[in-house]
Design a protein around this nucleic acid. Structure first.
Length: 482
RNA sequence: GGCCCGUUCGUCUAGCGGUUUAGGACACCGCCCUCUCAAGGCGGAGGUCACGGGUUCGAAUCCCGUACGGGCUACCA
């Protein structure tokens, strides 16, 4: 068995979205599982919509997810170039080959004529592709018209002596396509540029791709490409078509559903391990039980026969739950950079600060990572530690500080804390005595303190928060509310 | 219109003819823990396996049909 070679072939007409990311993940996991080659190929033949910015964004997203490619942009490889716009020589050569062996024919029908024919046929109910007018042209006629400079495209001549073509799809199983329903599709446009189906066929052949793993939406393209590859005299790759990912309403994922790109999720506080995990399990399963899976386990166990056939609805709630799992699982040193980044964005801290009091940050980390699901929740949770004076939230003030007994609790705490050593056991024993002393429920004593110190009703544990805030600021804030 | 694909709790899925009173996870509800919020523990509700026929002693699992959803049907990718 020759080496497995797969490709992820995005079109840089937009950002890397969730569907593309999952396709990339499956290609990558399959390659890694088989000690094969994972290639990245940029399909930028549409000059109108392709941009270098999109390409850069796609590469960035891939790296962020941890999907390293063995051949492709920025690293090269033996089968390059990896941008379709740089592979025109290959398409020309392939077209020449097909001309030589009679698999293609020139077509002089104009776009207007084609549209008219199509509409007429549709009206009477039975359109099934180009009517093959130019296919019957004699070689001499065609030659003469080409030499006369008449504009023409080249079309693939679908075999007429063959009933159908069977694709053994690794996800869907044997799929039979009747050839009568297949179009003599355009391979090269009037201007000589290749169309998508042709370019993809030529590239997959030239790059010796063994498995084409892509979205379901390409299923109908497969027979065309297979016929093209056969005409090229090359062996067919194996095909695996992945079901689509839908939005919450069961419709195609789009802007209407909010975030759809990988980077948008990053910006909303999702961690790469979580997105990789979630996407990997959206359409593939290890055993039906496993919901948390790391990249190594994924690549060690990935197999095509466990890819599901039906489309999946993207569920943000589950992604966020998973994200929380990964966040909670992080060691302080792993989580701290997320804190620093989030705080730095608000101008509350920076890397220098982190380097200066690493231990302090590492004590803080476990207090926050176990109570959030998104990294965007970091600042609201611990921002109070990084400001001189805290802004008391109005509803928290009304709900807690203005309640009966609140002032007394703050005053008692102020007094109890005034002369103690500033360590956790001391703070704890000083404050734990208060409820009994004031004859009040613990929460009625502690919530006012929380609001006074943090400005909100939600925060890391009180005693630890005080310890990390420092004695001076703690007492100052208690005084301020009194 | 033609061709192709899909259909198991709200969602992601397990299930490949009997071990299934259809299992797990998220979400939801209740209780416990508790200085808030989480996390955690325990428990609960939720599926006529799209529908209709067959095949079989026996079907979510195999076959056929129907319905619904989706894709392709461009000198887009």
């Amino acid at each position: 068995m020759s080496q497995v070679r797969v490709r992820f072939a995005p079109s840089p007409t937009g950002e890397l979205h969730l569907g593309g990311a999952r396709t990339a993940i499956y290609n990558w996991a399959f390659a890694r599982n088989n000690d094969g080659v994972f290639m990245l190929r940029i399909e930028d033949t549409d000059p109108e919509r392709s941009t270098p910015e999109n390409t850069a964004q796609i590469l960035r997203s891939m790296r962020w997810l941890g999907l390293d490619w063995d051949e492709g942009p920025e690293i090269g490889g033996a089968f390059g170039p990896y941008f379709q716009t740089e592979r025109f020589d290959n398409y020309v050569a392939a077209l020449e080959k097909l001309k030589d062996n009679g698999s293609v024919y020139p077509c002089f029908c104009t776009p207007d004529e084609l549209t008219a024919k199509r509409e007429a046929a549709r009206k009477t109910g039975g359109y099934s592709g180009y009517d093959r007018t130019c296919r019957t042209l004699s070689l001499e006629d065609a030659r003469r018209r080409i030499d006369a400079g008449e504009p023409h495209v080249w079309r693939l001549a679908i075999p007429l002596d063959q009933e159908d073509i069977t694709i053994n799809d690794l996800v869907h199983g044997e799929t039979v396509f009747p050839l009568t329903a297949l179009d003599d599709y355009i391979v090269a446009r009037t201007d000589g540029t290749p169309t998508y189906n042709f370019a993809a066929s030529v590239d997959d052949t030239d790059m010796q791709i063994t498995h084409v793993i892509r979205g379901d939406d390409h299923m109908s393209n497969t027979p065309k490409q297979a016929l093209t590859i056969q005409a090229l005299g090359a062996p067919l790759p194996q095909y695996a078509h992945l079901p689509m990912i839908w939005g919450p309403d069961g419709k195609k994922l789009s802007k209407r559903h909010g975030a759809t790109s990988v980077e948008a999720y990053r910006d909303e506080g999702i961690v790469p391990e979580a997105l990789l995990n979630y996407l990997a399990l959206l359409g593939w399963s290890l055993d039906g039980e496993t919901t948390v899976i790391d990249a190594d386990t994924l690549t060690e166990n990935f197999s095509m026969d466990r890819i599901s056939k039906n489309p999946a609805i993207f569920d943000t709630a589950k992604l966020e739950w998973l994200n929380g799992v990964y966040l909670r699982d992080m060691e302080p040193a792993e989580f701290a950079p997320y804190m620093v980044e989030a705080l730095a964005k608000e101008g509350l801290s920076d890397v220098g600060d982190y380097e200066q009091r690493t231990e302090w940050f590492h004590e803080l980390a476990p207090l926050v990572n176990e109570r959030i699901k998104l990294t965007t929740e970091i600042v609201p949770m611990i921002g109070f530690l990084f400001v001189d004076e805290v802004q008391i939230d109005e509803s928290a003030r009304a709900k807690v500080l203005d309640k009966e007994g609140a002032r007394e609790a703050v005053a008692a705490a102020r007094e109890a804390l005034a002369d103690i050593e500033w360590d956790l056991p001391s703070i704890e024993s000083a404050l734990q005595a208060l409820p009994a002393q004031l004859d009040a429920k613990p929460r009625l004593v502690f919530q006012p303190l929380r609001v006074a110190l943090t400005g909100t009703t939600i925060s890391p544990p009180l005693f630890e928060s005080m310890l990390l805030l420092g004695k001076e600021k703690t007492l100052k804030r208690l005084d301020a509310t009194l």
